[in-house]
Amino acid sequence: MIETIFSRPESLREVSTHYCPGCTHGITHRLIAEVLDELGLRERTVGVAPVGCAVLAYNYFNCDFAEAAHGRAPAMATGIKRCRPNLIVFTYQGDGDLASIGTAEIFHAANRGEKFTVIFVNNAIYGMTGGQMAPTTMPNQKATTCPFGRDVETAGYPVRVCEVLSKITTPSYIARVTAAVPKEIPRAKDALRKAFQYQAENRCFSLVEFVSTCPTNWGMNPLKACEWAVSDMMPYYPLGEFKTPDDPLPAGLNLIEGDE
């Protein structure tokens, strides 16, 4: 009698993705699906897909899904969640979508403390459009629109989303994980589980950033891409929890709130 201890989660459809071989999007999708299964949330979940490589994410998850305009997934998720607060809502966004064109939407969704979960896939490049510079492209990293490498004098330094959003006063859960290192995958799942759990408890906005790879546009094989993510991205994008809803509010605010 063989007991299956690992197989495709119910929240993930039995279809082959369009992602390139070795792209960590697939792992990230599966982890979300596993968490939805484990928390029993699939039947009341609505996902919001981005524009970018994950634009077809709605074909892969076995739950209701909407397709947003580029960068607007947090606005769309706000509309869905506010109208139907009993739903579990998540957005799935890449670095161009979230950290460039959708900066205003993600910042203010976090600041309003919208009770949905954001999965942010940071692979330091625009994948779907063919390898252009992203807001998270590393200094000197080559891309088709910075063929000599990102020049920080003209393009600035890469945007660190977790660091920025965790400075917002409104309570939230902000964590950075990776699926590019096998032993980090269980930790990534822990972070996702917490993020969805906080949402299910109606506690706070949650965002989990995945330091991810793009073997195709980085011009590396999948293993080399994972190694590059560790050697070149993670020193600048450190893993860990940046903010939890249990963190104390700034002292000044407590004074304003009065004597409770």
Partner: peptide
């Protein structure tokens, strides 16, 4: 192996 597979191509069982 299964954890790191981006395509859920690996199943793990135990007897």
């Amino acid at each position: 192996c299964a954890l790191t597979c981006p395509d859920v191509a690996i199943e793990v069982g135990v007897q």
